[in-house]
Every structure is written in C-alpha cells, then in structure tokens.
Design a protein around this nucleic acid. Structure first.
Length: 276
DNA sequence: ATGACTCCTGAGAGGAGA
C-alpha cells in the first residue's frame, strides 16, 4: 500500500483529445505519476461510454461532464482522497457548464477543470460565445470559495505573444485575439488569480499544444493555451509547474501535453483561510 | 509556415479541433 504525503498535492491538467483513443497513454501517465487529481478536457465521449471501470482499476474515481459531440471535461481523483463537494454549473448556469466546466472540492482544494470554446477563426468572426464563457469563468472565480481555488484546463487563449511560436502567423486567430486576451486578464485580475506556469517560469515558452500536422511538434511550433490559474493565497504554495513532454511524444499522443502542478502545505493554506 | 493530422460517428465522408 502506497502512502502519500498529505501536505503535497500533484495535479495534472491534460487535453486528451478523446479519452477512449487516449486511454493507453492516460493509463501510462496515471501509473507512472500517480497524481492526486487530474483535470481532463476534450473527453469526446458520451456518458455511457466513459471508461469508469478502467479508471477504477487504475485507482481513480471520475466525474464526467460530456459534451454534445466534441468537448467534454472530467476530473479524476485518486481513490485515497475523499471528495467533499462537486459543482456542475458555471456562474449558476448548467447549460454553459455542460462539457466545459466541472468543479470538485477535495483535500482542502477547490479544483475546476475547464475547456473554453475555441471560438473564432479567421473566416468566422463571431466570438461572442467564447467571450461570454470567459466572462462566466471570471464570475465563477469571483464567487466566494471556502477553499483555495485552482482552475486548470484548455483556455484556447495564449495570454501574450511570448506564449506562441510566431505571433505574426497567428495574428487575430482564436488563440491570440485581443478580446480573448482582455477577458483572460479580466479573469486573472478580478478573480485575483495567478497564471502559475508564467509565474514560476517567466522566461520559458511553456508550450502545451502543437498542431498534429506537418511536424509542428518537432519544430516546436507550439502554443501555451493550457493554463493553471491559482487563487492568490494558493499561489504561494505552488512549488512546481511543468509541461510533461513525454506524453506528447511516442505512440498516438494527444496534440496537447499534460501540465503538472505541485502544491505544498495546502492544509496550512486552508486553515489560514478558515482562521481569517 | 504547416507540404501529407486525428478524433468522433456510424458504416463513408464530414465536421471539428487549434
């Protein structure tokens, strides 16, 4: 029986691009890393086909919010943890959350798994759905949370030009449009959230997503659109945040790499919040 | 700039992703 350090939590966020197609790689990651919690995006899997049994064999319980056809988010919790609450709505809207937002409180932490709509392309300029969704995430982050909060997932927004391989090629695209970036700043400022990777690695690219075509990964034509946002009182407890390249390589990878976040002293953090 | 992807559904192409 493995024993785990209760004061240290490791959380992985991963856009798996189809949980069924990715199950061998997900199993590999869970066996090797044994994270406490996992936020998944793009499960692309109907409710009835979700691999609860296989995940159970691997020692994880899953909560799943399927999307209509694409999308879908899940949160996996290692079986030795007790889940204290769950939330299936985003800014009090159930329909907005379907397939795109899940929230679980566990081990003194409220964790959100988010999949922001990709939004506009160069051809298709209407981005109102994406902006409304980002607004709802901002509101959700502003709600009173008893526990410190970590929101992790695929935001489909690269916060700045430093987060994309060649800004001029992507000008005005879904990931770099000014309005999206403005809304992301709004989430960070109003929710008092910290972009964890950028906070710990001010000078690295930290790309998490590479197009599957044409050797983008080999050339490192990447985007940093998978983010972990921590409430400010949680941010000081984050000791590590890394892109796990091993799972973007090898056999049948997702187009995204997992992002791993390590927290220490989380119980202290919750206790201080209660005392305050 | 990328030459030439890969998932899903449903039974073959077509939509979607980013």
């Amino acid at each position: 029986m493995t024993t785990y350090d209760e004061r240290r939590l490791r959380i992985v966020s991963w856009n798996v691009n189809g949980i069924r197609a990715r199950m061998p790689r997900i199993a590999e990651m869970l066996r090797r890393e044994r994270p406490d919690m996992v936020c998944l995006q793009e499960t692309r899997c109907p409710f009835r086909h979700f691999p609860h049994k296989r995940l159970g064999e691997l020692g994880y319980r899953a909560q799943h919010s399927p999307g209509r056809r694409n999308g879908g988010v899940a949160i996996l919790v290692r079986s030795d943890h007790r889940i204290t609450s769950r939330c299936l709505s985003l800014d009090n809207q159930h329909d907005l959350a379907a397939g795109r937002w899940l929230e679980t409180t566990c081990a003194g932490l409220t964790l959100g798994s988010v999949y922001v709509p990709a939004g506009p392309t160069r051809q298709e300029l209407d981005d109102s759905g994406k902006l409304a969704f980002l607004e709802a995430v901002a509101n959700q982050a502003c709600h009173d949370h008893y526990h410190p909060m970590l929101i992790a997932g695929d935001f489909n927004v690269a916060p700045s030009d430093r987060d994309v391989y060649e800004p001029t090629w992507l000008e005005g695209s879904y990931a770099t449009a000014a309005a999206e970036r403005e809304d992301l700043r709004h989430i960070l400022n109003d929710g008092e959230l910290v972009d964890v990777y950028r906070h710990l690695h001010p000078d690295d690219h930290g790309y998490t997503c590479w197009d599957q075509r044409g050797g983008h990964y080999a050339r490192d034509y990447g985007l940093r659109i998978d983010l972990a946002l921590a409430s400010s009182r949680l941010a000081e407890h984050i000791t590590r945040c890394e892109v796990k390249h091993a799972y973007r390589q090898g056999r049948r990878p997702s187009n995204h790499a997992p992002l791993e976040i390590e927290l220490e002293g989380i119980r202290d953090c919750a206790e201080r919040a209660i005392a305050a």
